[in-house]
């Protein structure tokens, strides 16, 4: 289980974005996790709150979007892959050596929490 390490890296990347935008806090963030990334979304979600404590991400809502694996079959074009069957076209079984998508591990969006200027 390396999701705590991943959560800490996520917080580093997100904190950098907060600094770039002059924001103190985020209220939500979305990450994209590929089916071939070896990261378990539930474990990442579980690890995140403790890792975020004391940072600008504390209390932020973490959404994990799972990105399915997609391969390129010579006969069937773009096909959705099943991790348990490996890199094989689900229709004809041909090898699909390259993942077109599905190995992502990225911070997609951040919702910055900024004080409403009219209320300051």
């Amino acid at each position: 289980m390396h999701e705590a390490s991943i959560a800490l890296s996520l917080i580093d990347v997100a904190s950098e974005v907060l600094r770039e935008h002059g924001a103190a806090r985020a209220s939500a963030l979305t990450v994209r996790v590929g089916a071939w990334s070896s990261v378990v979304p539930e474990a990442l979600t579980a690890a995140f709150p403790a890792c975020a404590a004391g940072t600008g991400l504390e209390g932020a809502r973490l959404s994990v979007v799972t990105v399915p694996g997609v391969g390129d079959c010579p006969a069937h074009g773009r096909v959705t892959l099943d991790v348990t069957r490996g890199l094989r076209c689900p229709s004809c079984g041909a090898p699909t050596p390259t993942l077109v998508q599905g190995d992502e591990l990225e911070l997609d969006e951040i919702e910055l929490a900024e004080p409403d200027l009219e209320d300051v």
Binding site: S9, L105, E106, D108, P115, D116, D119
Partner: peptide, 19 residues
Amino acid sequence: MTATNPRIVTVRQNILKAN
């Protein structure tokens, strides 16, 4: 009232980019 004004920022960055 302490309303906040959320702003969505698209990041699209690899989480392990430092590594």
